[in-house]
Design a protein around this nucleic acid. Structure first.
Length: 221
DNA sequence: TACGGGATCTGT
DNA sequence: CAGATCCCGTAA
């Protein structure tokens, strides 16, 4: 068991559509001022790019979206529907407005101070709004850097998780893409499913959502 | 300055 | 399927 490897800004400094699937299986770390730490495995992501009409930075640079135009490795948090927050990881080169929305986490174990509410524990961080509620992520964390010692940082897939993903790729004899429900496609030999994004009205057909197949924390639709 | 819609979630 | 609830982009 090796210790966790923090994700550097350079690794995130690529197109969001490349980063988003690779963030699956990685760990989001939330560190509170008193030192308490919550770790969650990322199981669902979406990519947003500069020329993507669904992207908050599509039209112009503004006070809210400015951080997306900057270098990779910063947090973009926004308030949605007046009551939920959503967490994004800024990606790509300085000047290229893009980000990955973190849509779901599995928390194992769930720390005692995380509010379970009612409902299944495996769904405490199922959905972009719920994961921010569970980890107490709000606007004050927007425009902070993902780095160890900060309130938020990211860690690469553990060896175990990496093996899981690779093993899944080996487990089936070679096949092409297999169509599942509603246009979702997944290689029969991969844990990762790629499909269209959720909750948007523009860019609806872009297949820029990825999730870990079979995971209970993934949005259902 | 005013207005309306939104990368959500829950309960009916 | 409606409602909660508030910020921000757009138009005036």
């Amino acid at each position: 068991m090796t210790h966790p490897q923090p994700i550097q800004a350079s690794w995130l400094s690529r197109c969001s559509t490349a980063v988003a699937p690779e963030l699956l299986g990685c760990t989001l770390v939330r560190c509170f001022p008193d030192g308490r730490v919550v770790r969650g495995q990322i199981v669902e992501t979406e990519a947003y790019t500069a020329d993507d009409p669904a992207c908050h930075a599509y039209r112009r640079r503004s006070l809210r979206n400015a951080v997306m135009f900057g270098p990779a490795g910063w947090a973009y948090v926004y308030l949605i529907y007046g009551m939920y927050h959503c967490l994004n990881v800024v990606t790509d080169l300085d000047g290229v407005a893009s980000a990955v929305l973190i849509r779901a986490l599995t928390l194992d174990p769930i720390p005692s101070w995380v509010d379970l509410g009612k409902g299944k524990p495996e769904r405490v961080a199922a959905g972009p709004g719920k994961l921010c509620r569970a980890l107490q992520i709000n606007l004050s964390l927007s425009e902070t850097r993902f780095a160890p010692g900060q309130p938020l940082w990211l860690e690469h897939r553990s060896l175990e998780v990496q093996h899981q993903f690779e093993q899944a790729e080996r487990s089936e004899p070679q096949h092409g893409l297999e169509s599942t429900t509603a246009g979702a496609t997944s290689a029969t030999n991969s844990l990762i499913v790629q499909t269209t994004r959720i909750g948007i009205t523009q860019g609806v057909d872009l297949p820029w959502r990825w999730y870990v197949g079979g995971c209970k924390a993934v949005s259902k639709r």
